[in-house]
């Protein structure tokens, strides 16, 4: 039972790392600002969620798990808001950038 749990958490953490690497490759390789934004935000939030799910196995108590869950929710909300803000600012580009 224990070794099954270990295996499951390792698999989850590796899947999260895979999504992080996919996000980084997308950030570097995609041609446009908006496509980069699309690759980055979604892949990162999913990867972070998988890593936190894998780390639940190592939590010392329940409060820690609650903290991780809240942190993930905060990251999802702030990531969505931030990508929206960046996209809107780039869409309206008023010459401040150049």
């Amino acid at each position: 039972m224990n070794i099954l749990l270990d295996l499951l958490s390792v698999l989850l953490i590796l899947a999260g790392a895979f999504f992080f690497i996919a996000g980084t490759v997308g950030l570097l390789r995609l041609p446009d600002l908006f496509t980069r934004l699309h690759a980055l935000t979604k892949a990162d939030n999913l990867g972070l969620g998988l890593i936190m799910l894998g780390c639940v196995r190592f939590a010392p108590d329940g409060l820690y798990i609650a903290k991780m869950l809240l942190l993930w929710l905060l990251i999802m909300a702030s990531g969505a808001t931030a990508s929206h803000l960046i996209a809107k600012r780039a869409l309206r580009g008023d010459g401040e950038d150049y």
């Binding site: 999260g16 790392a17 950030l27 934004l37 980055l40 990162d44 939030n45």
Partner: peptide, 14 residues
Amino acid sequence: RMMAAQLLGTSGIG
């Protein structure tokens, strides 16, 4: 650059 800084924050949390 701001987007990359955001990636940095998320991966740092990981």
